[in-house]
């Protein structure tokens, strides 16, 4: 179980303020969605929680520990991250890319996760020839083979068809039922987020 607290956080990028004094609590063992229109700072916020972006003011804590004081290696054991918009120019195979840099325990789960995400048909195909949705599932698979208390996903369903969406949602629910904390960045349409337990609107603050 892991609780993420975002307390009065402000972030600016290239001199422009993207997020101002934003606060939220991401409950442990739940699926939380952060929604908001384009440019409202959702992805910036996720990058900050993932430890990729320095925050200007305020603090982000994981179970009461300030994110700034958690080392890169420790963060890696705490959370898995799915980023969006991947462009691959090197012709690694789907499987090679999923397995890249993963530890022995993760490698044992590759087959099951690929199966669950319907990726077996293109496991040996070059990633440069995949569709947007297929390439996005590589990112998702890389995160899901890892066993961490927290999962951070930036618009994981944006390029997926109906069947894939259902598969991914089922996997995320399964993780939640095991007590994992799941944070999803999503577009504004609240009605399609019935599978989430908590919704945070960036515009509401």
């Amino acid at each position: 179980m892991a609780l993420i607290k975002i307390d009065q956080v402000s972030i600016s990028r290239g001199g422009k303020s993207v997020i101002e004094q934003f606060s939220a609590t991401i409950e442990p063992g739940k699926i939380t969605a952060i929604i908001g229109p384009n440019g409202s700072g959702k992805s910036t916020l996720l990058s900050a929680i993932a430890g990729d972006l320095p925050i200007g003011a305020g603090e982000i804590t994981f179970d009461g520990r300030n994110l700034k004081e958690i080392s890169v290696a420790e963060q890696s054991a705490l959370r898995s991250v799915v980023l969006q918009n991947r462009n691959y120019w090197l012709s690694y195979s789907t499987r090679e890319l999923i397995e890249m840099g993963q530890g022995p325990d993760e490698l044992l789960r590759v087959d099951a996760v690929m199966q669950a995400l319907d990726m077996k048909r293109f496991e040996n195909q070059s990633v440069t020839t995949l569709s947007g949705g297929e390439a996005q599932r590589i990112e998702i698979a890389r995160a899901l083979i890892r066993d961490t208390p927290i999962y951070l996903l930036d618009e994981p369903l944006s390029a997926q068809d109906v069947a894939s969406k259902a598969r991914i949602i089922a996997l995320l629910k399964g993780l939640r039922d095991k007590g994992k904390t799941i944070l999803v960045i999503a577009h504004i349409d609240k009605n399609s987020l019935t599978w989430c337990d908590q919704i945070i609107d960036t515009l509401a603050q």
């Binding site: 990729d52 980023l83 993963q102």
Partner: peptide, 17 residues
Amino acid sequence: LDLLSLGDASVRHIGHN
């Protein structure tokens, strides 16, 4: 070096520099 094709953020996410 293979890892770098994932992009810097993803490399960091799995604990490498």
